[in-house]
Design a protein around this nucleic acid. Structure first.
Length: 876
RNA sequence: GGAGUUUUAGCUCAGCUGGUUCAGAGCAUCUGCCUUACAAGCAGAGGGUCGGGGGUUCGAAUCCCUCAAACUCCACCA
């Protein structure tokens, strides 16, 4: 059979993916004979399309799950999507707008019908894309955060926490998105630096038209909500004025001057207008001094009737108008350009308005305790720990109550029911609500309506590892018992608090267990210039195009290559190219082996020793690989495999056992080579699943059940360290000879002789004899022997051995002499430094015995070497 | 303003508890090769006062102090 010269993944990859699906290799069910290994996918937003972050994240998950599957675990990777309430609702609203439909004109039911339609049509794209990557998820388990059983879990948890007193309703200062008309969490506010103007505004005294007080503000449109002017009590300039009253411009409301240390004397005029309804700091000062709250803005960001003027007009338009009017009326003392940070909504980009509103909150303090404790004591391990543990700790120690209500329709509707007076009860459904209500308020058949708001998306996400197995919906769920707690979580560091910490809270709160054992935090994918990849910058490559260009295996390789855990990855396509090249290299090793003719004979001496060596090398590498897996150093694993396959298997092993052109290879050598190669393929499979499956089947006829994806992962055996050390020396020697050829311009085809003069080298000397045939083959030598007196000869020194290669007229005696002189000089200098170290009394007194012994050995070797070289030189 | 991380070759990074795996790898660069598996390749080579300074030590890339730069998170500028 003719095998093509380059590997072509285009047909191969879909073929095997379908094969895996058809044979249900990714399906997991509780199996008492096997240990479970579970990963839940960080559910991408239904609005999402695959980006490079997903690629990295899911490649790592797939590697972990495939390896465990091959190791005999019941490996379960649960896929799914997140309903992403704000993002999806914004998307649906925009879509309807294009169709000429305004959300305001729709009933809740009608809107949700549109939203579900949208979800069915576009919601699963990202999961389909993951299949191209090779993700071995159990697709039959695909979950969605708003499907019935997950919905139930969310409601159940809400009720539990309410009954426990953790969830409460209260008026609070929240981040208000006037465009989406909803609250957003602190984490969803993005602060941007903006060029603004700081206006210095005069507030005239209530009883003296000539006396005024100047304050500085960037938000003149909120002055109608002013209830006080605050100065620092230590500020000498204003001490005398405390308690006096001034008039708010334009509306002429008298407000007092009060004092609080929160005021920065340096900024602006050293005074602060207090607008409790529209600023966090002001709100707190307002609470402290029991000031009135005047809310001058409506939920859409226009001036409310309480503002008295410009009612119904947009806040930014009003800012300009008010400045104009203040100028006309001589209230502006000055204005300055400043750069300040303004909060914007992550979802809509609108400028966030701090606003007082009645919301649902969840107290976090108690739940934070086990969440911190179990990470500090490593019941849950975070990789890499050092980088994140301190911020994790800081966050949990200072955790704020969580505002969980959102003024949206797409999401889990809050299970609270109100009567017309505003009394409410919390219950699963209307029926229950009525029962509870009638008991609580002693009223039967009251008309109850459900809270209009939905829950924060993260309020369902934090239950994800539990709810995907119906852990709440059904008490006695087999899957939940078997697969939960899950084992590894792979996610981005950005959502450590949003999501990871909250999942840990939920785990301990609702199941008394950690939801997972290990958290692997990937890096953030950036472009070559170090910028975060984002749609708006347009600097993110399309992953599917990358796959088409470099193959899924190649891209997986590329994603991993330079992304140690937690380190940001500066993505460059060249890494994918390297992956593609690697696939091609493996392909050609396969071609070579397949091309061999086999003869029923004994293996040669070279073959036997080569196989022995590589077996040791392989086991040595496998131990390292397993060690790196343990530490979640996945990119190190990849580098280990890369070197093992490319350098040691292809460049050394295959070159050594490869028969001369047209000659056959012994059956034992062939079979051993196949076994070694297949083991390499197995180790490679989790990283490059497609090409390994293809070659696996190409190497011999295998049944469906013998796919590599379900083959048994190799276990590292003991190996002979001595062989490895000797062969490393042998390879170094080979390299020296090749170097000699290269520098003297001697063709690799020209047969050479090698002579050596040995002083003392415990490793290389026996290796020269044991591996004589291998050295001869690799260096194209006819002769290796102890030095006689053939001169002139090119020379080099390795360890305690001088080597000579008679090169006839290639040799320049003067240059050879120079080489030896250089070596001599270096060795003498080295000897001086060793002697100095040994002569140092403090060294002798403090250093460990083995260190001293080593220095003595260095000294003896150096002396022998010097003698030898001097002797050679005197003969030249 | 508070905290954290990072700084090693042109680029991206390894170097665990201070001493023969101590200055490493991959990519890039340069040289020579289309050598019957692979030019998506082969064989070689050159690149670094380990951010600066100081200290501890017989000995520091590694431990301590200090300065500098970059990044991240939290708080937040009226």
């Amino acid at each position: 059979m003719e095998i093509s010269k380059t590997y072509s993944p285009a047909q191969v990859e879909p073929k095997w993916y379908n094969h895996w699906l058809d044979n249900k290799y990714f399906a997991a069910k509780p199996n008492p004979d096997k240990k479970p290994y579970t990963i839940v996918i960080p559910p991408p937003n239904v609005t999402g399309v695959l980006h490079m972050g997903h690629m990295l994240n899911n490649t790592i998950q797939d590697i972990l799950i495939r390896r465990k599957r091959m190791m005999g675990y019941e490996a379960c990777w649960v896929p799914g999507t997140d309903h992403a309430s704000i993002a999806t609702e914004a998307r649906v609203v925009a879509m309807l707008k294009e169709q000429g439909i305004d959300k305001k004109d729709l009933t809740r039911e009608a809107f949700l019908a549109h939203a579900w339609q949208w979800k069915e049509k576009y919601g699963g794209i990202i999961l389909q894309q993951l299949k191209r990557l090779g993700a071995s998820c159990d697709w039959d388990r695909t979950r969605f955060t708003m499907e019935p059983s997950l919905y139930e879990a969310v409601i159940e948890v809400f009720i539990q926490l309410y009954n426990k007193g953790y969830i409460y309703r209260g008026a609070r200062m929240v981040n208000w998105d006037p465009q989406a008309k909803t609250t957003v969490s602190d984490e969803e506010v993005i602060y941007k630096e903006i060029n603004s103007k700081l206006y210095y505004i005069k507030y005239y005294s209530e009883n003296n038209n000539n006396e005024y007080f100047t304050i500085a503000t960037t938000r003149p449109e909120t002055i109608m909500g002013d209830v006080a002017i605050c100065v620092n009590p230590h500020d000498e300039r204003y001490k005398a004025l405390i308690g006096k009253k001034y008039l708010v411009p334009l509306i002429n409301r008298p407000i007092p001057i009060i004092a609080d240390e929160a005021v920065d004397m340096e900024f602006g005029t050293g005074s602060l207008k207090i607008t409790p309804a529209h600023d966090m700091v002001d709100y707190n000062i307002g609470l402290k001094y029991n000031l009135q709250i005047i809310d001058v803005l409506s939920d859409d960001g226009t001036i409310s009737p309480a503002g008295q003027i410009y009612v119904g007009e947009d806040r930014f338009a009003v800012r300009k108008k008010i400045v104009l009017e203040l100028t006309e009326k001589n209230h502006i003392a000055d204005s300055k350009d400043i750069v300040n940070k303004v909060g914007t909504s992550e979802r809509t980009g609108a400028v966030i308005e701090p606003r007082i509103s009645t919301q649902w909150f969840c107290s976090m303090k108690q739940m934070a305790v086990p969440t911190l404790e179990n990470v500090l004591n490593e019941n849950i391990k975070i990789y890499p720990k050092d980088k994140f543990i301190n911020t994790y700790k800081h966050w949990l120690e200072n955790v704020q109550d969580w505002c969980i209500s959102r003024q949206l329709w797409w999401g889990h509707r809050i299970p609270a029911w109100y009567d017309t007076k505003g009394n409410y009860v919390v219950a699963k459904n209307l029926e229950d609500a009525q029962k509870i209500y009638s008991q609580k308020y002693n009223l039967v058949n009251a008309t109850l309506t459900q809270d209009a708001d939905v829950l924060d998306t993260w309020f369902s996400s934090w239950l994800w590892p539990i709810s995907v197995f119906d852990g709440f919906a059904k008490n006695d769920n087999k899957d939940f018992k078997y697969f939960y707690p899950t084992h590894d979580l792979v996610t981005a560091p950005e959502i450590l608090f949003f999501w990871v910490a909250r999942m840990i809270m939920a785990g301990y709160e609702f199941t008394d267990k950690a939801p997972f054992e290990n958290v692997y935090l990937t890096g953030i994918v950036r472009d070559k210039a170090g910028r975060k990849m984002s749609k708006s910058l347009g600097n993110s490559p399309d992953p599917i195009e990358l796959i088409e260009k470099y193959s899924a295996d190649g891209v997986r390789f590329g994603m991993l290559l330079s992304s140690p855990a937690g380190n940001d990855l500066l993505f460059d396509e060249k890494y994918c190219e390297q992956g593609r090249n690697f696939a091609n290299k493996i392909w050609n090793a396969y071609r070579l082996i397949k091309s061999w003719e086999v003869i029923n004979s004994e293996p040669t001496d070279i073959d036997t020793k080569t196989i022995q060596w590589f077996t040791s090398k392989y086991n040595h590498a496998l131990k390292n690989i397993e060690d790196n897996y343990e530490k979640y150093r996945i990119s190190e694993v990849l580098k280990n495999i890369y070197t093992l396959v490319w350098d040691y298997f292809c460049s050394w092993y295959l070159e050594m056992v490869k028969p001369d052109f047209g000659k056959p290879v012994s059956i034992r050598t062939y079979n051993d080579t196949i076994v070694l190669f297949e083991n390499l393929l197995k180790i490679l499979h989790p990283v490059m699943p497609f090409i390994t499956e293809e070659i696996w089947h190409g190497l011999s006829n295998r049944t469906t059940a013998e796919a590599i994806v379900v083959s048994q992962y190799p276990v590292a055996q003991d190996y002979d360290d001595n062989i490895l050390i000797q062969c490393d020396k042998v390879f170094a020697l080979v390299t020296e000879v090749r170097n000699l050829r290269s520098s003297k311009g001697v063709s690799p085809k020209e047969v050479l002789e090698l002579e050596y003069y040995t002083m003392k080298d415990d490793i290389l000397q026996p290796a020269l004899i044991t591996y004589e045939n291998i050295i001869k083959k690799l260096c194209n030598l006819s002769y290796i022997n102890q030095k006689t007196d053939k001169l002139p000869a090119s020379n080099f020194v390795m360890g305690g051995i001088e080597f000579f290669v008679p090169l006839g007229n290639h040799t320049d005696l003067a240059k050879e002499k120079e080489t030896l002189l250089k070596e001599l000089e270096y060795t003498k200098g080295f000897l001086v430094s060793v002697n100095a170290k040994l002569a140092n009394e403090k060294f002798a007194a403090h250093a460990k015995p083995e260190v001293i012994e080593n220095e003595n050995k260095k000294k003896a070797d150096a002396i022998a070497k010097i003698e030898s070289i001097e002797k050679t030189l005197s003969n030249m």
